[in-house]
Amino acid sequence: MATKKKATQEIILKKDTKTKGKALKEKSQPADNPYISSSFWKSMWIICGISIMLEFFIHRQKHFEELESSVLGNMSNWFGFYGMFGFIACSGCILLAKGLSVFLKEKEDYYDDTP
């Protein structure tokens, strides 16, 4: 029994040192620069790949069939449109927000002297 207890205590200690090590590793990261593991990146790319691959196996309903002359209407039926659209829309939003932050961001005490 005693040996078992010792063994479990050792495991707990090992776990503690592991988590402490992890915490130290994370603490050594510069502020607000999170560590994103390579496996996470891999899984991200795999999910995106799968989402594109799935499109091969489905029959997509056509958008804006009545608007034959519309470039956007036709583009919306391209293969992989939604993936491309998601990327462009999101990067556009982020860049726009970043650009606007030059004019819009202020210190937290900006309104302190106002009613």
Binding site: N33, C48, I50, S51, I52, Q61, Y82, G86, C90, S91
Partner: peptide, 23 residues
Amino acid sequence: DHVVTMFQMLAFSGLTFFLFLPM
């Protein structure tokens, strides 16, 4: 097909978030 297209858009939106994380 709607499920796939939504999934595709969200997957790429998520990827964009992490690609642009420093910003």
